[in-house]
Amino acid sequence: MMAIIPLALFGLDVSWDATLRNVILGSVILGMTSGMVGSFAVLRRQSLIGDALAHAALPGICLAFMVTGTRSTEVLLIGGALSGLLGTAVLLVINRWSIISMETALGVVLSVFFGFGILLLTRVQHGGDAAQSGLDRFIFGQAATILPRDVTIMLVVAVIVLGVLAACFKELKVLTFDPLFAASIGVSPPLVGALLSALLVLTIMIGLQTVGVILMVSLLIAPAVAARQWTSSLAGMVLLSGFFGLVAGVSGSVASSLIDRLPTGPMIVIAATVIVALSLLFAPERGVLSTWRSRRTRAEHFRTILAAADHHGVSSR
């Protein structure tokens, strides 16, 4: 549909073709959504639940294929979403009804579901039909296989997720900040917690094709952590996080298309991590550099005062 439009970007020729457009669109949608939803996961200390849920999606994807025989993205993603939600439920049950700690429960769900997924995947592959099934593209992501249709699906899901986020913003905010108080004003922690998990699962579905199961967690965490360093309001953090996610998505996609043999998923993750590193170092007030500098200034100031006191024979006792 799109003609090939050459684009001079830093003196390099970027072939702006349909594939690249899809990849960039997909990455933008992914980056924004995961940045925003990830903010809440990070603030709730649930960063790694996203990792577990992403891994838990694999068996669902394989089963969806095995049951329906179609490779159409929405069917596979629905399967992934369902098994992701199942993973959430299992997590809660393990955490609530046994002495197993949350960290361990996450590890169990993550590895067992994923292992089961691999078992199913290899079964499908050995079955012959699915050497072309392309199911394994969900593990590492294979942005080049994103079709315009897939982009539409991602967009629809993203709109739903962000819509819910906007509508329930204050409920999510008060729940994350002070769960006891939230319960006392009628914002039920289990209900809103479940809502957030559902949003997380949907967000992960958006990202599976681009960055894959293993790297998805980075996009939920990095933009949010980066954003936190620059702002002190929740709304600001969420929006900035979405922006950082978007930037990471675009830069990763463009970089991978400019340079040969550079897979999109990892590039996006590297971009996001660079953004975080820069934020941690250079953000005003909170940044490492800024804190170090102000600490040094204070120490010097203090030394000056002490020296002056000594000089004037004032006891420092």
């Binding site: 603030l43 204050k170 409920e171 905010k173 008060v174 994350t176 900040f177 002070d178 769960p179 006891l180 108080f181 006392s184 004003i185 914002v187 936190r228 702002t231 002190s232 309001s233 929740l234 600001g236 953090m237």
Partner: peptide, 23 residues
């Protein structure tokens, strides 16, 4: 509630916290 249940690193200011009382 007792102050222990709160996340102190949360990005919010004093006015915002009080505003939550209106929710």
């Amino acid at each position: 509630p007792q102050r222990g249940s709160v996340d102190w690193d949360f990005p919010t200011d004093a006015l915002d916290v009080v505003l939550m009382g209106r929710y």
